[in-house]
């Protein structure tokens, strides 16, 4: 597991380099909420020689991520889910809600500040 921590502006360059080296399969885009910043992780893989790499970057509240749909078409569903679960805005394309489509009042449930179970009442 090779770890690379980069900044937000180098993201598209790094991914294009990796595609040229043969890492052409996107496994997952996920994020972890450490309370003062968010860490976004991209897992990519080389199908020929079965190697994997993670690319990590840090984001604060209110920053925007560039979209990578032009490089990997698989990033479509992953970016939609990331933006509605964590409240990250993505620039470059129009992002619609995926899993919480009908509940506009529900914002970013996977953050640590979302008090879950607050809706539970039974008489």
């Amino acid at each position: 597991m090779v770890k690379l921590k980069i900044s937000k502006n180098e993201l598209i360059e790094k991914l294009n380099e990796a595609v040229k080296e043969g890492y052409n399969y996107l496994v997952k885009i996920t994020a972890v909420d450490y309370i003062d910043h968010l860490e976004v992780i991209y897992f990519i893989r080389n199908i020929e020689n079965k190697k994997e790499e993670n690319i990590r970057l840090d984001i604060k509240d209110g920053e925007r991520l560039p979209t990578i749909v032009n490089i990997f078409k698989a990033a479509d569903f992953y970016e939609r889910e990331l933006s509605e679960m964590f409240g990250i805005e993505i620039e470059g394309r129009k992002v619609e809600r995926l899993l919480l489509e009908k509940w506009d009042g529900l914002e970013a449930p996977l953050r640590k500040k979302f008090e879950w179970g607050a809706d539970y009442k039974r008489d």
């Binding site: 997952k28 972890v32 992780i41 698989a74 569903f77």
Partner: peptide, 26 residues
């Protein structure tokens, strides 16, 4: 299927599941 887990002492801090049917549907 893949799981990425960040651990804490007693409970997981974050568990991220990669489900195969999710990406097949897209």
């Amino acid at each position: 299927g893949m799981m990425y887990m960040v651990t804490d002492k007693q409970k997981p801090y974050r568990l991220s599941i990669r489900a195969p049917a999710f990406i097949n549907l897209s």
